[in-house]
Design a protein around this nucleic acid. Structure first.
Lengths: 231, 231
DNA sequence: GTCTATATATTGATAGAC
DNA sequence: GTCTATCAATATATAGAC
């Protein structure tokens, strides 16, 4: 599947649309340029994932990246460019686990490892998860076309895989779309609502072990909820 | 339980702390004043739930409320005041379903109706859900004390209720905290990720019926996942 | 490539006429 | 109570020296 391109709508607040035309800057190519860009993207991920597009400022990003604001703008001439780049690479990585759900595999290990991979992404890339969540809360103004296009297509395909398993009696007959939603929701919760999870679990149970506990619980929930069993 | 007070931290970005001291304005009391405030709060809920605290502007709120910016500031002298009020009333409503989970009731109808009520809140008050989610994504800077205090206390209590049922063999032995998290995650998903849900389900299944489908699915998932059964 | 200085727009908030 | 006008701070972005 080709990488997902994110086009920015330049009508963020209905004004400033005239700014859209900007002199093009040659594509960065040297190693040092790519490294600087990576530092900026890393810092931007921090800020955008917390504050959202509008709430984030170039000042914050520049400070987090350890460089001056004009210097940052030398590499990414516009705030939107940074966000666009983050969105594109995030979406590509984010959907990888679902793409890997294999129709020829056995349902039990396939679904189980899908849940495990999604939970690992929440553990290892929580900021990407929050960046995505932030965009969702805003109504996905910049990636709605991706959701209705590539994402819907992918989910339709995988829902078909699940339905096939249901017809073969290998998993319980249920709504495949809402099954996928529930896996997304439960796993991403540990990234997006991490503060709450840790606050509620407290000092004793809110440490690193919380992901192990979550993995055990979710595996249990979905194995019981999805597979035909005669205890 | 007393209403939850939300205190604002006046260190939003490390600056402007000197602004905190402000001449107090007499509490609004007349009917017309309360109505105006309600209009403002309604508009503010719209904007804050989409953009978060920093991303939202008084201009946007004023326009949505159909009044001028200075006029709005006559009723709420500071942006933070509006947000604070929304947070307080939202938190109070938001936790009501969990408070109502009754230890003397039967596990089956109790848990089932808790899930149903939470899903209904996502359907009927999606903006409140997104307001809460937005605050979480930012690391809950303004309600962390509530999460660690009232919320943790409430969840501890209800986790105890669930554990009691487990010891009596009425529900499957599992982690009560993560069970609660998974109910929160799956139900709130239909408010917070509403755009995605509708985009993926498409025109045909993304209409109002999606909540009915979700309710059926979730009831099924949790009943199978939580109750001892011998099919 | 990086900096200081600055242009320009937006933002939260206030002053003061009506 | 509501408005116009406006301030001070902050925002995105650019110019131009080095």
């Amino acid at each position: 599947m080709p990488p997902i391109k994110v086009k920015m709508l330049d009508s963020e607040n209905g004004k400033g649309a005239a700014k859209a035309a900007r002199k093009p800057r040659p594509r960065a190519q040297t190693r040092i340029q790519r490294e600087k860009q990576d530092v900026i993207l890393e810092a931007a991920l921090d800020v955008f994932s917390r504050e959202g597009f509008r709430g984030a400022t170039i000042d914050q990003i520049a400070e987090a990246a350890g460089m001056s604001k004009p210097n940052l703008l030398y590499y990414f001439p516009r705030k939107e460019e940074i966000y666009k780049r983050l969105m594109t690479s995030m979406l590509d990585v984010w959907l990888t686990p679902l793409r890997e759900l294999d129709s020829v595999g056995d349902p039990v290990p396939e679904i189980r490892s899908y849940i495990r991979r999604k939970l690992e992404m929440s553990r290892d890339f929580p900021r990407q998860s929050r960046l995505f969540a932030n965009e969702m809360l805003q109504g996905a103004p910049r990636i709605l076309d991706v959701l209705e296009g590539d994402l819907k297509q992918l989910v339709d395909e995988k829902a078909g895989v699940l339905e096939g398993w249901m017809q073969q009696g290998k998993i319980v007959r249920t709504d495949p779309y809402h099954l996928i939603f529930s896996i997304w929701a439960t796993t991403q919760h540990y990234a997006d609502f991490d503060v709450q999870v840790r606050a509620v679990l407290g000092k004793d149970r809110g440490g690193e072990g919380r992901f192990e506990d979550a993995a055990r619980f979710l595996e249990n929930l979905f194995m019981r909820g999805v597979f035909p069993h005669k205890d």
